[in-house]
């Protein structure tokens, strides 16, 4: 089942990798079976954001008064292949908390 790893096979692979790494980028991605994506820049999170997000008091409490236990995820998760297929298991249902 397992291939025996010998010093020679390690050397062979390392030599091959060095050769590929020295070739142009387009070829590299194909050889290494890799797909690229780039992340976005991050912001600093320690800020003096008093009144963050909203002004304050009464109005803003709505922001975090929602009860997640009575909520259904309503986002892009509804758009995947399994969510749209009738047999898929991504079908969204409201979660019902079981009473003990």
């Amino acid at each position: 089942m397992n291939k025996t790893i010998t010093a020679a096979s390690l050397a062979l692979a390392l030599g091959a990798a060095m050769t590929v790494a020295a070739t142009p980028a387009a070829a590299q991605n194909k050889m290494s079976d890799k797909e690229h994506c780039y992340g976005v820049a991050l912001k600093g999170k320690n800020d003096c954001k008093a009144g963050a997000g909203t002004t304050c008091a009464g109005t803003s409490m709505r922001d975090h008064q929602g009860n997640a236990w009575s909520m259904v995820p309503k986002g892009t998760c509804e758009k995947t292949l399994s969510s749209t297929s009738p047999t898929g298991h991504g079908q969204l249902k409201e979660f019902k908390e079981k009473k003990a």
Binding site: C48, A50, T55, C56, A57
Partner: peptide
């Protein structure tokens, strides 16, 4: 930012 307190007096928020 400008709000009011429970008595209707101004309550200013240091919002930056």
């Amino acid at each position: 930012a400008r709000e009011v307190d429970a008595a209707g007096d101004p309550l200013l928020i240091d919002s930056h």
